[in-house]
C-alpha cells in the first residue's frame, strides 16, 4: 500500500469540504473493497477521508412507505434490523448473504452501491426495489444511478448519504455463488409493488447489474415462478470467464429468478 494522508471528519459538511480540497482523495466507508485494492496498488489515493465518525450516516428507519438506510450502515446491521425484517425481509436476507460475518460487520451499503462491483449484491436490490440514492447534493433514482460495471452517476465530490427503499408487496433475492470465491455467478432480486414488477440481475451481466425486462413482462401475467418456466437470460449479454461461460450464466439467471419468485410468493 502506498502512503496517504488520513482524515476523519466529524460532519458531512466537513467531509465534503475535505473531499473538494484534497487532490485525488478517496472516501473510506467500510474499506472492504478499497483497502484490498490499495494493498494491490491498484488504487493509490493521496488521501483517505474516513466517514466512520459520521453518526448522521448511520441507522435504519421506516419513513412512511419507505425504509431508509444510512450510507454507513453495515450489512450486519441491515441483516439483523427488525425494521428491515418486517418491511422488506428479502433485503435483510440479501444483506445476510454478503461475504462472511466479519465482512458484514464492516462493509456498508453506501460503499457497495458507490463501487458498483459487477458481482455485488446491493446494486440488484436497489434496482429491483426502485431505490432512491441520496447524496450530499441530490437524489438519484436507481435506474439512473448504475451505469455499467464500476460506473455510477456519482460525480466528483459527491457523497452518498442514504438509500431509500419503497416497501414492496413481495420481494426476494436468490444467489448462485462461485463455490470458491462465494461471489455471485448470478444473483437475482425480484420485487412486486402494486402492478410494477422489477427483476434485477447481478454477477452475470457483461456490463454489471441490469434489469431483466423479459422476465418482468412474463411475471406481469402472473407473479409466479411458473411464469418464468424455461426462460433464460440473453447469453449474448452475459459475462463469460473461467468460472462460468455466458450460456451457463444465462441459464443460472433463469433458475435464480424462479427461486427468488418462489421465495417471494411463499413467505
Amino acid at each position: 500500500m502506498y502512503a496517504f494522508d488520513y482524515h476523519k471528519p466529524t460532519s458531512l459538511r466537513q467531509a465534503a469540504s475535505m473531499l473538494a480540497k484534497a487532490e485525488d482523495a478517496k472516501i473510506l466507508a467500510g474499506g472492504h473493497t478499497l483497502l484490498p485494492t490499495m494493498k494491490q496498488r491498484l488504487a493509490a489515493p493521496s488521501s483517505l477521508i474516513d466517514l466512520g465518525a459520521l453518526a448522521e450516516l448511520q441507522g435504519i428507519e421506516r419513513k412512511g412507505r419507505s425504509v431508509v438506510v444510512g450510507a454507513m450502515t453495515t450489512h450486519a446491521a441491515v441483516a439483523s434490523s427488525d425494521v428491515v425484517r418486517e418491511a422488506i425481509p428479502g433485503l435483510a436476507e440479501m444483506a445476510e448473504m454478503i461475504g462472511d460475518p466479519a465482512v458484514r460487520t464492516r462493509g456498508t451499503i453506501g460503499g457497495s452501491v458507490a463501487n458498483n462491483d459487477p458481482a455485488a449484491d446491493y446494486p440488484a436490490a436497489c434496482l429491483a426495489l426502485a431505490a432512491t440514492i441520496t447524496t450530499n447534493k441530490r437524489k438519484i433514482e436507481a435506474d439512473d444511478f448504475f451505469r455499467g460495471m464500476f460506473d455510477t452517476a456519482l460525480e466528483e465530490g459527491e457523497i452518498i448519504t442514504k438509500v431509500s427503499f419503497p416497501v414492496p408487496a413481495k420481494a426476494a433475492y436468490a444467489k448462485f455463488r462461485n463455490p470458491a470465491s462465494r461471489y455471485a455467478l448470478a444473483g437475482v432480486f425480484v420485487a412486486k409493488r402494486g402492478s410494477e414488477i422489477r427483476v434485477a440481475v447481478t454477477g452475470a451481466g457483461a456490463d454489471g447489474v441490469f434489469r431483466w425486462t423479459a422476465a418482468e413482462e412474463a411475471l406481469k401475467t402472473r407473479f409466479s415462478a411458473k411464469s418464468l418456466a424455461g426462460m433464460a437470460a440473453d447469453a449474448s449479454m452475459m459475462n463469460s470467464d473461467i468460472h462460468a461461460d455466458a450460456e451457463y450464466r444465462a441459464h443460472l439467471v433463469g433458475v435464480m429468478a424462479r427461486r427468488a419468485v418462489e421465495a417471494a410468493t411463499t413467505r
Binding site: 474499506g31 474516513d50 464492516r106
Partner: peptide, 17 residues
C-alpha cells in the same frame, strides 16, 4: 473490535481509534 468480529488485515489501525 467494539464487540464484533472483524478481519484485522482489512481495517486500518486508525479506523479503530
Amino acid at each position: 473490535m467494539n464487540g464484533a468480529a472483524v478481519k484485522a488485515c482489512t481495517v486500518l489501525a486508525l479506523q479503530a481509534d
